[in-house]
């Protein structure tokens, strides 16, 4: 068994899953959606505001502090 160069438990052939080009549409869509979601948890109605009022800010307030975003 000493002729194997790969350790099957931790190693796999170095073959990419897919061409990077195939990932681009998914990457753009996911990044856009994720940034929107992260913005509403992390910053909306704090430093900047899309919706009027502070209800959203107060609703996710504890998560914002706990996750380390500046809050107030």
């Amino acid at each position: 068994m000493s002729d194997t160069t790969l350790t099957p438990e931790v190693e796999a052939p170095s073959v990419p899953l897919m061409p990077l080009g195939d990932l681009i549409p998914y990457a753009l869509l996911t990044a856009l959606l994720a940034i929107m979601l992260l913005y509403f948890v992390g910053a909306e109605e704090g430093a900047t505001s899309v919706f009027p009022g502070m209800t959203l800010h107060e609703f996710v307030h504890d998560a914002r502090h706990l996750l380390g975003f500046p809050c107030h």
């Binding site: 796999a12 052939p13 170095s14 073959v15 990419p16 899953l17 897919m18 990077l20 990932l23 998914y26 990457a27 996911t30 990044a31 959606l33 994720a34 940034i35 979601l37 992260l38 509403f40 948890v41 992390g42 107060e58 609703f59 996710v60 307030h61 504890d62 998560a63 914002r64 706990l66 996750l67």
Partner: peptide
């Protein structure tokens, strides 16, 4: 409120995580 915040945050990061994984795996 806290549950909503952590779930939204984690799902968003989870999506990005999966795509970065797809990009780096095998590379």
């Amino acid at each position: 409120g806290l549950l909503t915040g952590t779930i939204v945050y984690a799902v968003a990061i989870g999506g990005i995580f999966a795509l970065v994984f797809a990009g780096v795996y095998g590379r």
